[in-house]
Design a protein around this nucleic acid. Structure first.
Lengths: 200, 200
DNA sequence: ATGGCCCATGTCAGTTACTGTCATCACCGT
DNA sequence: ACGGTGATGACAGTAACTGACATGGGCCAT
């Protein structure tokens, strides 16, 4: 090994930067390329230049590696609803929160597409997505209760909001779709108001 | 081995009846007694007088053993909605379907309590419950589309109905609760109509 | 500058969920 | 009687996940 190479290595820090990010990217690539079940954690770690043990230091399990951004999304939703004018009725406050999430996601549509392609192809990943959405609903209900909303009303408004988001998101991901996520959310919320207003 | 014992065994059928039911009962007992994670499949099988391999012949995985009844629930929901009068608006048709589910569950409240105690104590079981509820929503939306409801309206009505069911079920399971599941469902649906009617 | 602590990562052994394959053997119809 | 059938057992193998300990550059205090 030449002196130049030695110096080069001495200038490097001991490890490549952003191990967690490299693992997440490698995992998404492999899940999309050959599917979640056909990918082993050892392969993910190897592509990231790490070992299986290190993967499990950053992620609780093989599924969690796709859901690193969900806590940021949840914090945005909660803070937006919390900061909404007190005079605003609950259904409008959650609408504002959903649109804030929509704006964040709209910036990364390509990433969302690839990630969702992996998720819809595997039921274990779908399960994990559902519990992340349930966590969103719980946090949203708590934010509404802080605004003075009744427990029952808070839970129902939060669950309805997540239902609206789920359906709008699915339409947004559709390859034939051209519209913004925020617009689809507004349309879905309006439709929910229509269907619940019918009947006895 | 004595002749008497041999004759006794010859009169029995080769295997104890209802292996699947014994496995499900043993699993619920152990999940409640010591928790889902602290229970191994080998222990479940042993309590049922079977082997681990036989457990996996009846159940796809360690979680599924708690969800044997969900397909019957889904069929009841779908058939009730399908059989509702054509003139009935979607929101009322799903209300009838939810009440049919409520009546079925009301008969087994004790079993539901024990089962739910195991589920809420473990996130993996919660994930499985959520995907079963998502399956209910999908089947419900399909039933609504058959009734001529728009795709968007069907999806939203179905998701809203499942949200109502989830919240009513949680209140029904509460140990201080004395009311019928059907009554709680009606109250939750009414509250959903109220909160969605507010706002701009 | 140097000695030593820090901490991200590696190594290794172990448990358990889950699967594929073949063996067993009482029952049942012919 | 006898051979097929089907539920179960036995056994080996893979991969997810965990605990314990080792390693070795970077960095701080002296």
């Amino acid at each position: 090994m030449s002196v130049a190479v030695i110096n080069y290595h001495h200038r490097m820090s001991r490890w490549q930067p952003d191990a967690q990010g490299r693992l997440a990217q490698a995992a998404l690539e492999l899940y999309v390329e050959r599917g979640y079940e056909q990918t082993t954690v050892a392969e993910i770690a190897s592509r990231a230049g790490l070992t299986e043990r290190t993967f499990f230091r950053y992620f609780a399990d093989k599924r969690e590696v796709l859901f690193g951004g969900s806590s940021a999304l949840q914090e945005l939703l909660v803070s937006t609803v919390t900061d909404a004018p007190t005079s605003m009725p609950p259904i409008d406050a959650v609408a504002v929160g959903l649109e804030a999430m929509a704006n964040l996601l709209q910036e990364r549509r390509d990433h969302s597409l690839r990630r969702q392609a992996a998720i819809v192809a595997n039921v274990e990943l779908k399960e994990r997505e559902l519990i992340k959405l349930a966590s969103l609903a719980t946090a949203l209900a708590t934010a509404l209760r802080t605004r003075g909303v009744t427990d029952l009303a808070a839970n129902l408004t939060a669950e309805a909001a997540i239902a609206v988001f789920k359906i709008a998101f699915k339409r947004w991901i559709d390859p034939t779709n051209q519209r913004d996520l925020a617009a689809l959310i507004r349309e879905s919320l309006a439709e929910l108001k229509t269907v619940t207003a019918e009947g006895t």
